[in-house]
């Protein structure tokens, strides 16, 4: 977890105005941020690797593909990088649309550096949290995949019916003895590296990843 500190995160700045790019990147670098700038949305799309953590500071009014469009494309590609819109227009409808699309914030130009930095830090935090959740989920999935056929069936039943996790009920339902259920349950907790059934349910592994 130590390699996921905010310092390692990158600010991706997309703005068509060179002066804005220069001043902003300098200011952010001066404050210790790692900054990569792009003149338009396509350049960013080409260069960005979803594995890179950080946030996107995106000008709303870009030529060719504007900020909203880029937001839409990222959403389609299931890239969850947090977006901070900066705009010279700053109309209410635009703001509404951007926030609806999942933007972290919407700043009207000119904005105070402090505000931007706060937004960026918040975005980094959100991004880091998201990435941690994703990692845990992937770990849980890989452990779930190691379960035997019967163990998966038992786990699935417990996830699907959180209110009836007694060995008797499970055994009746799956037509096996409660003792066997107990045995499976211990193996599941051990393999999934968790302490209780409640923790298993909290992992909320998607249905599609739990196929037997």
């Amino acid at each position: 977890m130590t390699d996921d500190t905010p310092q390692a995160a990158t600010v991706f700045l997309v703005d068509d105005d060179a002066d804005v790019r220069a001043s902003l990147s300098r200011a952010l670098i001066k404050r210790g941020f790692q900054v990569v700038t792009f003149a338009d949305a396509l350049q960013f799309l080409e260069a960005y690797d979803p594995e890179q953590s950080g946030c996107l500071v995106l000008d709303y009014g870009l030529p060719e593909m504007d900020g909203l469009k880029l937001q839409q494309v990222l959403s389609e590609r299931q890239i969850g990088i947090p977006i901070i819109f900066i705009s010279g227009h700053g109309g209410v409808p635009e703001t509404v649309q951007a926030i609806k699309g999942g933007a972290v914030d919407f700043l009207e130009k000119p904005f105070r550096q402090k505000v931007l930095v706060e937004c960026i830090e918040a975005a980094f935090a959100a991004d880091a949290e998201q990435r941690t959740r994703d990692k845990e989920r992937i770990l849980a999935l890989s452990r779930f995949a190691k379960l035997t056929q019967r163990e998966k069936e038992v786990a699935n039943f417990m996830i699907a019916n959180p209110s009836s996790t007694a060995s008797k009920e499970i055994g009746r339902e799956l037509n096996i003895s409660p003792r066997t259920v107990d045995h499976h349950r211990a193996r599941i907790l051990e393999k999934m590296n968790i302490g209780s059934v409640a923790e298993l349910i909290n992992l909320s592994i998607p249905q599609s990843d739990r196929t037997v």
Partner: peptide, 24 residues
Amino acid sequence: TGLAHELSQPLTAISQNLDTALSI
């Protein structure tokens, strides 16, 4: 609106640069 947009760009650069200069 147009003026605001056009002016907001240099103002943004100015303000950012000033912030940076100030911190320096």
